[in-house]
């Protein structure tokens, strides 16, 4: 059998409400040379019937079943069956623009040095979308190239998982999807980034991300802020903080204090705090002095920006530029 241009990889559990729409949006793609591997992770609703129907109507769709073993197991199982080296991820409740596959495929074809291409995303339905999600959407869509994605790599997950298309060989080379106590997608992006693989984003809205009350991201412990911090710290220790056992944290509020705890478990000590709050400057927090940003000099050791307030990142960047600090060298934003 001829290898299709793209393998679409989807894992579902109890997605009867929106699955048909998701599958339909794939079947309407302008690029039709694809196979779709859908792993049913132990659904107990009408999902199996919808999938059977879909596979019966379209020979490009292949269904795999497993007991409810979880997303990572399902994705690994499905990926083994993907015959193309281009894998487009998709979820059972989202919608693709009809040109999504065509454009992502062309982008990877034309840029052999890229391991992954994302697109702009848009949350829907609009009445379900709260402020924080809009900020996330704007932030993510603003990461328009590899440099910006890398600069903000430790801020949040830079990609919506079901919106990406990646090269299977790159993902396999870094160990594929892995089970951790944090999100498997962010974990994978960080491993790809640290291994030197390059990313891109097509600046067009080709993926629509459905928001509903019960989506996994709100429920699962893996996605709590704490898990995110642990994941970031784990990979910072292997990269930016590799040769250090002490660090400066800019931001000594609640977020900064949580970071101190997380880093301490990895045997990295906070030896200095930076804060703009005049009441804090001069104080000692957990054995480390709080200092004014004006004391900062280039080349004086690693610093993480741990200010929890939205919008602070840009102010820090401004101030750091005035002080001659270089992002990625003198500091990394982690919030």
């Amino acid at each position: 059998m001829k290898t299709p241009a793209i393998s679409i990889l989807m894992a579902v559990r109890n997605e009867e409400e929106h699955l048909q729409a998701a599958v339909d949006s794939i079947r309407r793609q302008t690029l039709s040379d694809w196979e779709m591997i859908i792993v049913d992770d132990g659904s107990t609703d009408a999902t199996p019937a919808i999938l059977e129907d879909a596979a019966r109507n379209d020979s490009r769709i292949k269904i795999l079943r497993q007991e409810p073993l979880g997303l990572v197991t399902a994705l690994c199982k499905g990926m083994q069956q993907c015959r193309s080296d281009y894998i487009a991820r998709m979820d059972g409740d989202d919608i693709c623009h009809p040109r999504r596959l065509e454009k992502q495929w062309a982008h990877l074809e034309n840029h052999p040095g890229l391991a992954l291409v994302a697109t702009n995303i848009r949350y829907f339905p609009s009445h379900q979308v709260r402020g924080g999600m809009r900020h996330y959407e704007i932030w993510q869509n603003g990461l328009v190239n590899d440099d910006l994605i890398r600069r903000d790599l430790f801020v949040e997950s830079p990609f919506t998982q079901p919106s990406v298309m990646f090269r299977k060989n790159a993902v396999v080379a870094v160990g594929g999807y892995q089970e951790n106590s944090w999100g498997e997608d962010y974990d994978l992006w960080l491993r790809l980034a640290l291994a030197g693989y390059r990313f891109a984003r097509i600046p067009e809205t080709l993926f629509f991300w459905r928001e509903h009350g019960n989506r996994l991201t709100h429920l699962a412990e893996e996605f709590t802020l704490n898990a995110f911090r642990r994941c970031k710290a784990h990979y910072l220790k292997q990269s930016y903080l590799k040769d250090y056992d002490t660090v400066t944290l800019w931001g000594s509020g609640l977020e900064g204090k949580e970071w101190r705890k997380t880093l301490e478990k990895l045997k990295i000590t906070v030896h200095r705090w930076i804060d703009i709050d005049p009441r804090k400057i001069g104080q000692t927090i957990h054995g480390a002095k709080v200092e004014d940003p004006d004391v900062l000099k280039p080349g004086s050791g690693p610093m993480l920006i741990t200010i929890g307030v939205r919008g602070a990142r840009e102010l820090v960047r401004q101030k750091s530029a005035e002080l001659g600090l270089v992002e990625g060298v003198d500091y990394v934003c982690v919030t």
Partner: peptide, 11 residues
């Protein structure tokens, strides 16, 4: 009707 609502509206 934005793309993402097309299926839901028809349905």
């Amino acid at each position: 009707i934005l793309w993402e609502y097309n299926f839901d509206v028809r349905n």
